[in-house]
Design a binder for these strands. Structure first.
Lengths: 242, 242
DNA sequence: TGAGTAAGGTCAACGCTGTTGGCATAAGGT
DNA sequence: ACCTTATGCCAACAGCGTTGACCTTACTCA
């Protein structure tokens, strides 16, 4: 078997599989995303990937070191899709808001993949480009470097954290997702006011909001805070923080 | 095999296993937490759980419907540990801050378990009690119910989202965690200023902050926003939002 | 005190999984 | 046209969650 994976750029021989498919890293990643979509979070298996690809399962190991390596490639693909087609306005707040919402949207479009990848550092092209862009937007505000880094970190972690949390609910196996939702109607909505007065009083409102993400609100709050820091920096010169 | 799991309260016969262990749901949950700690996120297996418990693997199915049911029990245990020993001050902001940080801390103490459970709704005792407490704190501020629910949701989701994200990094298999960390030093810190000026300029600051959680900052921002809403509610009567 | 019941522990088996070593084949540089 | 070797394929391994049947023994009730 393969001692080493040949990098995509150095591949010369493109030998089709028995079923006539010419395999590439990109094709594997796209197939993996589709399988996660169709079969759920646990539905990405090497054997099924081979089947869907029209190749032997072990072929994967000619293109990735293993499942974890494939996972990092998927992570980078998600970031790439989030940033692709972006239209920067030059207004930092508008641009940051759009990036945050784009990340959230792109991840929720592939919830099973999002769960697998949100906490990973791929170090691949799309991730690096995204970070460079983000840091550029923040630096353009004139913030001192330590503040840029602080806000950058909060922004990225918040976007990824909410994306992962919201995706995790969507990505649950159907049985578990239905069970979790049933808890709201069967358990929370039925608690008696004597023992749980607060839940009982708010149950209808809680159930109604249940499926909405809190990310847009949290994002706006972060941008407010950033704006305050930027005002402070522009006014006070080298005063950095309170 | 068992057609149905007997609820813990109704258990009468406590028959020890061949190795003399008297099994309970609580014992299984504690053992599962310990195994996750010792063997990593993928280290909780039914067979290993049986071994650690001193019982046949299939014994689990006498106490839980399956791995997913056990997962929900673990989720509730984490919430219970987060809230246990809390000392309410009666000051809403202080109390909310403490609850948020306690959740974050309790989850990070068991990162592998946190990843499995952060997005689940257990509907069990500790979770319900925690929600009742939180809603009580928020209602004590005099906020109108819709604002209570809105802030409650943002607060809980943000706490769980950051807990899950931060836990996910800690819970990675050692090889993956080391690889992700190496990316920062080997990839980001080495990018040339010509192609990636922003990353190159900030690399030392980025690497230094790499291991710190952004949650405390985000939490304080959420509390700021809540405080503003409360002020507005107390002043304006029935004016709810901007 | 003794008998009957069924809770609960154990065993063996099923069809999955990721991964690997060895082998066959054909692509592409010369 | 040849030769090298990249690349696809096959078979096998250990370990996974789960299940059905079986057996043992704690508890109930007379």
């Amino acid at each position: 078997m393969a001692k080493k994976v040949v990098p995509e750029e150095e591949r010369r021989r493109r030998r089709p599989t028995r079923q006539g498919v010419v395999v590439t890293q990109q094709l594997i990643v796209e197939t993996a995303l589709r399988m996660l979509h169709e079969h759920g979070r646990d539905g990405l298996t090497v054997r099924r990937l081979g089947l869907a690809l029209g190749a032997d399962p072990s072929t994967l190991y000619r293109y990735f070191r293993g499942i974890d390596d494939l996972t990092l490639a998927i992570a980078d693909e998600l970031i790439g899709r989030a940033m692709r087609g972006r239209r920067p306005t030059g207004q930092w707040r508008t641009d940051l808001r759009e990036i945050g919402l784009r990340i959230h949207t792109a991840y929720l479009a592939h919830p099973e993949a999002a769960v697998l990848t949100a906490s990973r550092v791929s170090g691949r092209a799309n991730e690096i480009a995204g970070d460079e862009t983000l840091l550029g937007v923040l630096r353009s505000t004139g913030l001192p470097d330590p503040d840029v880094v602080r806000i950058y970190q909060a922004f990225v972690d918040q976007a990824l954290a909410f994306a992962a949390l919201d995706a995790a609910s969507l990505a649950l196996p159907e049985a578990a997702r239905a069970a979790d939702e049933r808890v709201w109607h069967a358990t929370y909505a039925e608690l008696p006011a004597e023992t749980h007065p607060n839940i009982a009083a708010l149950a209808p409102l809680l159930v109604a909001r249940m499926n909405d993400s809190a990310y847009p609100t949290a994002l706006e709050m972060l941008l407010d805070s950033a704006e305050a820091s930027i005002r402070r920096a522009r006014r006070g010169g080298d005063r950095a923080d309170t």
